[in-house]
């Protein structure tokens, strides 16, 4: 069966070009987002997940730069577009919502205006029509008293409401793809659950695709169809969400899953992954995780493992699974 993709990232390389040389923050990353699916990218801070998302939007912060690879939005390579063409993609075909709803809205502009601005940028409509659209989308994302909220300034709204405003802004032009960069990290858990539910509901209604970036496995499990685990700028494991949570193969993925508290297990202490994220300037030639890996073998620091398909759609970058000799199960 021919799978249709909204977004295909192929061998993306993005780096920070600093005075002390190139820092490879995203290294040969390939991610496929099937139409109508929710794809999660998970990993620790600094693993390159946000950088990957910003590369898709071509909104890398200085001195970040896309060094190679392609980003195909329904076949159109975003890396080849001019800045002008890219502006019509941003907010029109791809929208993004950010981690901090408290600071992501302009403090001196009414939230209604900020959302209608997005509508007017991409649709040839009048201010009055845009306002109607905004009120409609406000109701749809669960903002009560839409008329009143339209006139509100960001500081008058709670964090959950602001994130709803951000979602409304992202949704107003019916994008093909929504990128949510840690959309619920700054919110408390009850609000988080509401926002996640809303995103899922919007996906079901509109058929858009969503990329969700998170370090929170609970969020990923709740929402995603497919998951990519990133470590030190590379994808180390990818699978559909059930496979990933049922039978993770990469030692890092296992470590991540073990470090989540499960209420049904009687644990004395939460397990952690020893060590910390490696310095991207001084990565080993081989596997970047080997210094923290309990199963590291002699040649792990020298030889870079390739992504191996271990089951249909389940790929792992680890020497343990190569050739099927060892599969990482103790």
């Amino acid at each position: 069966m021919e799978q249709e993709y909204t977004l295909q990232i192929e061998n993306l390389r993005s780096s920070f070009l600093t005075d002390n040389g190139e820092v490879k923050a995203v290294n040969e990353v390939s991610i496929n987002v099937p139409k109508g699916s929710i794809v999660g990218i998970v990993g620790e801070s600094g693993c390159g997940k946000s950088m990957t998302a910003r590369s898709v939007m071509r909104l890398l912060k200085y001195p970040g730069k896309i060094m190679g690879g392609s980003i195909l939005l329904e076949g159109k390579d975003l890396t080849q577009l001019s800045e002008k063409e890219m502006q019509s993609v941003r907010g029109g075909e791809i929208s993004m919502i950010f981690q901090e709803p408290m600071t992501s809205l302009n403090p001196v502009v009414k939230v209604g205006k900020q959302v209608s601005e997005a509508a007017m940028l991409h649709q040839n409509i009048s201010a009055a029509e845009a306002k109607e659209l905004v009120l409609e989308i406000f109701r749809r994302v669960g903002i009560s008293e839409a008329e009143k909220r339209y006139e509100s300034f960001p500081h008058q709204l709670s964090g959950g409401l602001r994130q709803r405003v951000m979602i409304a802004m992202a949704m107003i032009c019916r994008p093909k793809l929504l990128i949510a960069d840690e959309p619920t990290t700054a919110l408390d858990v009850t609000v988080e659950a509401q926002i996640l539910k809303l995103m899922k509901q919007l996906r079901d209604e509109t058929g858009m695709s969503i990329i969700i970036i998170s370090h929170n496995l609970g969020v990923i499990a709740e929402l995603c169809d497919y998951v990519y685990v990133m470590y030190a700028g590379r994808v180390v494991e990818e699978a559909d969400v059930f496979t990933l949570f049922e039978s993770p193969r990469h030692p890092y993925t296992k470590g991540l899953l073990n470090s989540v508290s499960a209420l049904e297990l009687e644990q004395e202490r939460l397990e952690t992954i020893p060590g910390s994220v490696p310095n991207l300037r001084r990565l080993p030639a081989g596997c970047a995780f080997c210094a923290r890996c309990a199963y590291a073998m002699e040649y792990c620091p020298e030889q870079l493992p390739q992504l191996q398909e271990v089951a249909h759609g389940h790929r792992v970058r680890c020497h343990l699974v190569e050739g099927g000799a060892a599969n990482g199960e103790e």
Binding site: V89, M96, N106, E117
Partner: peptide, 26 residues
């Protein structure tokens, strides 16, 4: 450097629009 500048860019604003409509007033 503020987050809402990213938001404005993500909306599809040009550099000029971002400066005049969002950055300058702040």
């Amino acid at each position: 450097q503020e987050d809402y500048i990213d938001t404005a860019r993500a909306k599809g604003r040009s550099q000029m629009g971002v400066i005049v409509l969002h950055a300058l007033r702040n």
